[in-house]
Computed example of a mutant assay.
Amino acid sequence: MKNSTSQIPAPTAAPMQPETPIGAGPVPRRRKRSMLVLGVLVTLVGVLGTSMLVRSAGDRVDVLAIARDVPAGQEITAEDLTTAALPNDPALTPVKASEKASVIGRRATAPLHRGELLTDGQFHGGKTLPAGQELVAVEVQRGAAPIDALAPGDQVKIIATQGKDEQVSKKGPAPEEIDAQIVKVGAPNASGAVVVQVSVAGTDSSLLAARAATGRVAIVLASKG
């Protein structure tokens, strides 16, 4: 007879229990109170910062700035201007935005560049010519005027020149001169000729226009001092 052997099942390992960290427990009441105080302080700082920003914004003033480049002598349009908010500083003297209507139509006395503030000295003092003055456009050929040196406001003399086939006589009368003031200097065309707008006395405007129509005039720049 075979001996029957009874098999005893192996003991089952008990599941491991996670260790409880030493010192773990509810957050101390003192730590909660400190965090509450810190939160209140952060809120107060935010409120004070916002108040200061609002107060500083109230001290700002709207002024005029240049929205796009404007050549010297060109009329200023509404599209050339924009507004900017600046601190009300007595050391700054830009034109206020409320004066925009009085600036439109005036001529720039110097090139205006995008992004810069507009000041009183950057445009002509009036929209119209002085009393007794008239505007005449004069086209001068290449080499007949110091174009690079001319700027709005310059005092010049406009002189009738001889034709290519005419001889200049030293014994003849001196060419007549017409006093004028530069208003705007155009860009050279393909042949190098430039149209210059000048302000002259009303008594000389017809004569100058007739001379300018011949294309035989020269511009002489007077001393700028």
Rank of each mutant, 00 (worst) to 15 (best):
Ala91Gln: 12
Ala72Gly: 10
Arg216Met: 12
Ile104His: 07
Ile178Gly: 04
Met1Ile: 05
Leu92Tyr: 10
Gln167Ala: 13
Gly202Phe: 02
Gly202Met: 10
Arg142His: 02
Lys164Met: 09
Lys171Ala: 05
Gly115Cys: 06
Pro94Thr: 12
Ser34Phe: 10
Gln122Asp: 15
Leu129Asp: 00
Ile178Gln: 01
Arg55Asp: 09
Ala218Glu: 07
Ala137Asp: 11
Asp62Pro: 02
Lys224Arg: 15
Pro90Arg: 02
Gln141Gly: 10
Gly121Ile: 14
Ala222Arg: 02
Leu135Lys: 15
Leu86Ile: 15
Arg60Asp: 06
Lys164Tyr: 10
Val136Ser: 03
Ala110Cys: 10
Val194His: 02
Ala101Phe: 14
Glu116Cys: 01
Gly23Ile: 06
Asn189Gln: 09
Asp59Met: 09
Glu177Gln: 13
Thr109Asp: 01
Pro188Thr: 08
Asn189Ser: 03
Thr203Gln: 04
Ala72Pro: 02
Val103Gln: 07
Gln141Ser: 09
Ser34Arg: 13
Gly46Val: 05
Arg60Gly: 02
Gly49Asn: 01
Asn189Gly: 02
Ala108Ile: 10
Leu64Asn: 02
Asn88Pro: 04
Lys100Thr: 06
Gly202Ala: 12
Leu48Ile: 14
Gln155Ala: 12
Ser169Gln: 13
Lys170Asp: 15
Met35Val: 11
Arg30Asn: 04
Val47Thr: 01
Thr161Tyr: 06
Met52Ile: 15
Thr20Trp: 09
Ile76Ser: 03
Leu150Tyr: 07
Val95Lys: 08
Met52Ser: 13
Leu44Ala: 07
Ser199Pro: 01
Ala13Phe: 00
Gly125Glu: 14
Ser206Asp: 15
Ala145Ser: 13
Pro130Thr: 10
Leu64Ile: 09
Asp120Ala: 14
Ala187Trp: 00
Ala67Cys: 00
Asp69Gly: 07
Val136Leu: 07
Ala218Cys: 05
Ile178Asp: 04
Arg107Ala: 11
Gln141Thr: 10
Ala160Tyr: 04
Val185Glu: 10
Ala91His: 11
Gly192Ile: 15
Ala137Trp: 06
Thr20Gln: 08
Leu36Gln: 13
Ser34His: 04
Met16Phe: 03
Ile76Thr: 11
Ile159Leu: 13
Thr82Gly: 03
Ser98Gly: 13
Arg31Val: 12
Leu117Asp: 00
Glu176His: 11
Leu53Arg: 09
Thr119Asn: 04
Gly58Phe: 08
Met35Lys: 01
Leu135Asn: 14
Ser102Lys: 14
Ala101Val: 15
Ala201Leu: 09
Val140Trp: 03
Ala213Trp: 07
Val54Ile: 13
Val103Asp: 00
Ser56Ile: 07
Arg106Leu: 09
Gly23Cys: 03
Val183Cys: 03
Gln122Trp: 08
Pro28Lys: 11
Leu207His: 05
Gly23Ala: 06
Thr161Ile: 14
Thr203Asp: 10
Gln17Ile: 12
Pro87Ser: 03
Leu150Ala: 12
Asp80Thr: 14
Asn88His: 05
Gln167Ile: 13
Val198Thr: 11
Glu79Leu: 05
Arg211Ile: 08
Pro28Tyr: 01
Gln181Arg: 14
Ile22Ala: 07
Val140Gly: 04
Val136Cys: 02
Ala160Leu: 04
Ile178Trp: 06
